[in-house]
């Protein structure tokens, strides 16, 4: 930036800096690191699944990551560190700053029903992005819990001897594989809806990038 440009900068802040902060920096950073980690985990997970499919279908190699089993496993066991470390930072800050308590609770069933019908009629307000509607709250809490389940079921598949109590908790090695797959399916479904809604309400995407 040149000196002139700095001198010509408006003395009065523009709208982009006067709007309230919706997502603090730590939320945005952890959100996008998580997005990257999830894409790697899902893509490589599909390739790993193909080595011994649980159901009567396989994921096309073109949409999977790693090209073959060993490559996919290298990606999966590298990105798991990114996913888990970033996830722990997010959970600790979410609890410590009170953000989870403020934003996600309380969730009242009557409000969930009301907002769900409003959403289906396309009448849900997005004027104030700092407040989540009840359906959003429920889905965000649900996806956080699913994140915990996918990590723990993954650990129980990776270490069924060292973490055998955890593996037993998930119903044994074989059942844990189905739990891990089910959690992936839930996350991918969430992802599709989440991305579609972010595109429908573009200012929510802007808020996750610049914070306002």
């Amino acid at each position: 930036m040149t000196i002139e440009a700095t001198a010509n900068a408006p003395a009065v802040p523009d709208a982009a800096t006067t709007r309230p902060v919706i997502h603090p920096l730590w939320v945005r950073v952890t959100h996008w690191i998580n997005a990257l980690a999830m894409l790697i985990m899902i893509g490589s997970g599909w390739q790993i699944y193909d080595a011994a499919p649980l159901f009567g279908f396989e994921f096309p190699t073109q949409i999977a990551l790693g090209n073959w089993l060993a490559g996919a496993l290298l990606w999966h066991f590298a990105a798991m560190w990114l996913l888990v470390i970033n996830g722990v930072v997010y959970l600790v800050l979410g609890i410590a700053t009170g953000r989870f308590r403020r934003k996600l609770f309380p969730i009242r069933p009557s409000e969930v029903v009301r907002d769900l019908f409003a959403a289906l009629r396309g009448k849900l307000s997005h004027d104030d992005l700092t407040v989540y509607n009840a359906v959003q709250k429920l889905l965000y809490v649900g996806i956080l819990l699913t994140g915990v389940v996918i990590v723990l079921s993954g650990l129980s598949i990776w270490k069924p001897v060292q973490f055998q109590s955890l593996t037993s908790f998930f119903g044994g090695y074989n059942t844990a594989r189905y739990v891990h797959f089910g959690a992936m399916t839930a996350i991918v479904t969430f992802l599709v809806v989440h991305v579609a809604l972010a595109i429908l309400v573009p200012k929510s995407l802007r808020a996750m990038i610049i914070g306002r």
């Binding site: 894409l39 893509g43 949409i63 990551l65 060993a70």
Partner: peptide, 9 residues
């Protein structure tokens, strides 16, 4: 070349 292009990549 197990890192080669794929849609997710």
């Amino acid at each position: 070349f197990f890192l080669r292009g794929a849609a997710s990549l």
